[in-house]
Amino acid sequence: MFGQQVMSGLATGSLYALTAVAVVVVFRNTRVINLAQGDFAMIAAFLGIVFLKNFQLNYYLMLPLVILCSMLLGVLVERLVMRPIADTDWLTLFTATLGVYYILHGVAGWVWGRDTKAFPVTFDAKPISVFGTLVSEGHLFNMAWAVCIGLVLFLFFKYTKQGIAMRAVTDDPETAKLMGIPVRFIVLLTWAMAGFLAAFAGILLAPIVYVSPEMMDEVLVKGYVAAVFGGLYSIPGAILGALMIGVAENLAGGYLGAHYKTATAFAMIVVLLTFRPKGLFGIQARREI
C-alpha cells in the first residue's frame, strides 16, 4: 500500500505543481500573489471543451489555440487591471487579483453554466504499472509535463536573454530599468507566461478534476501552499513542494485517516515556516509581502 500511496500522491502533487509554478513566476517578477491563477486554468479548460466539442478540433489543434487564448487573457488582465494600479502597495494588487478571480468565476458560470462538465477523455483509462504500482496514463502525462515545464522554465530563466532580464527585474526593477530593460514589457510577458502555464494546468487537470467554475479552487490553495513551501521564488522548489504535499496528503489519508489529508498540507507548511521562514529554497532575502 505504501508504494501505491506514494505514487498516487505524486500524481496528485503533479496537479498542484503547474499552479504552484505559475504562482512563483508571477510573484518573482511582479511581487503579486495571483489569486486568479486557478481561474485562468479554469477558463482554459472551458475553452478546451469549446474547441473540442463545438468546433470538433482534435487535441493537438485545440492545445495551441487554448494556450494562445490563455496568454491573451493574462495580457488583458495585466493591461486592464494590474498596470493601472502597478504602483500601489501589495495588498491592493493582491485584492485586485481577488477581484479578477470573482469576475472570471462569474463569467464562466454565466457563459458555460455552473454544472460540472466532463472533459473529453484523451487518455487510456487502463492503468499502467510503474515500479510495481499502478498509475493512470493521464496522471503519468501530468507528472511528465510538470517535470518538463519546470525544466524548461529553469533553463529559460537561467540562459535566455528574456529570462535573465526577468530575473534582473525580480532583483531590482529600478536598476533594471536604468540598464535599459523594458520593465513594463517584462511584466506583460510574465502575465502571458502565467496564461501559458494556466492553459496547461487547465487542460491537463480537466479530465481528472472535471470542469466547473470551481474546479481550480482547491488546486489553487494547494498550489499556493506548495509555492510557499518551495520559497516563493524557486521553480524547482515549487515543484518539489507540490509533490511533497501530494505524497504527504496521501500517506496521511492512508495511514492516519482521510480527515487528516488537508490538515497535513497545512501542518507541513507551518512546521517548515517555523524552522525555515523562507521556505525550502528561499535562500536570498528579498522584499517580503
Binding site: 498516487s8 500522491g9 480527515h259
Partner: peptide, 15 residues
C-alpha cells in the same frame, strides 16, 4: 470518509 470538495479519493480507494 471524503470531504465533499476533495480533489481526489485515491488514498481512500487504495486503502
Amino acid at each position: 470518509g471524503y470531504q465533499p470538495k476533495e480533489l481526489d479519493v485515491s488514498s481512500q480507494v487504495i486503502k
